[in-house]
Structures are given as structure tokens and as C-alpha cells.
Simulated assay, not measured.
Amino acid sequence: MDVLKEYIKATNSHNFEEIKKLLHPNAVYFFTDKTCKTHSEIQSYFENAWEVVKNENYEAHDVQWLFISDKSLTCTYTYFYEGYVNNQYTSGRGRATNVFVKESDQWLLIHEHLSPLPE
């Protein structure tokens, strides 16, 4: 689905204003270490991550669309990231769930849940 591709592209812009264009006003993010319930909290989390992982590239692999309707889309995928922490190359993977809703003919992300892969 194009909306996920747009979201990944916005994430890789490292400009929260690009992500914000795709966020529902009531968006909630579940990160491994924090829940963010406002755009301000989400922005702070993203900007901190971009500061820690320099030149980060984020990708969605093995995308599975679990639910598709005229008003809602839900997918799971394996996320992959790579970049530099303290000038050392690093990369990692985890699980992601994204829920999009359609409002005023635009798909908006209302929920994202990221977690580590099971051991």
C-alpha cells in the first residue's frame, strides 16, 4: 500500500513535519521503552532517535496487510534500521504494527507499535 511507503519515506526524511502530515490527531505510538500519546511526544522521540542514530535508514520488510477496508488499514512488518552511533555502524530489526484510518480522503497513521523480535 502506498501509504506505508509514504510513511517510510517521511521517516527517512528526518524531518518530523513530513511525518506529521501523515499522523492522525489522536495518534498513539508504543515504543519498546515509551508510549507517546501526543504529536509533541512523538516528535521528541523521533528527533532523539535521529540524534542518537546518525544518517539512519529505516525500512519495512515482509509487510503483511492484515485488514483492508475503505476506512482502515492494518499491517505488520519487520522493521530494519541502520546508521551510525558514536561513529560506529549499527543496524537492527524488530516487529512493527501500523494502523491507518481514512479521514477526508487521506490515510493517516493512528497507531504504531514497535517491539524487539522474539528470541
Score class of each variant (00 low, 15 high):
9 K>W: 08
9 K>V: 10
9 K>G: 10
10 A>R: 14
11 T>Q: 06
11 T>D: 08
11 T>W: 14
11 T>I: 10
11 T>R: 14
13 S>Q: 02
13 S>M: 02
13 S>N: 00
13 S>W: 00
14 H>Q: 13
15 N>Q: 11
15 N>K: 03
16 F>W: 01
16 F>K: 01
17 E>C: 01
17 E>I: 05
18 E>N: 04
19 I>T: 08
19 I>H: 05
20 K>S: 14
20 K>I: 04
20 K>M: 04
22 L>K: 02
22 L>W: 03
22 L>G: 01
22 L>S: 12
24 H>Q: 07
24 H>R: 11
24 H>T: 05
24 H>A: 15
25 P>I: 08
25 P>C: 15
26 N>E: 13
26 N>R: 13
27 A>T: 13
27 A>Q: 07
27 A>K: 09
27 A>G: 05
27 A>W: 05
28 V>P: 11
29 Y>L: 05
29 Y>D: 01
30 F>K: 04
30 F>E: 06
31 F>N: 08
31 F>T: 07
31 F>C: 00
31 F>P: 05
31 F>R: 14
32 T>D: 01
32 T>Y: 12
33 D>R: 15
33 D>W: 04
34 K>H: 10
34 K>P: 06
36 C>F: 04
36 C>I: 06
37 K>Q: 14
37 K>F: 07
37 K>H: 09
37 K>W: 02
37 K>I: 10
38 T>L: 07
38 T>W: 09
38 T>H: 10
38 T>M: 11
39 H>I: 06
39 H>A: 06
41 E>L: 13
41 E>T: 07
41 E>D: 13
42 I>G: 00
42 I>H: 11
43 Q>M: 03
43 Q>G: 02
43 Q>L: 01
44 S>K: 13
45 Y>P: 04
45 Y>D: 11
46 F>H: 13
46 F>S: 00
46 F>E: 01
47 E>L: 01
48 N>T: 10
48 N>A: 01
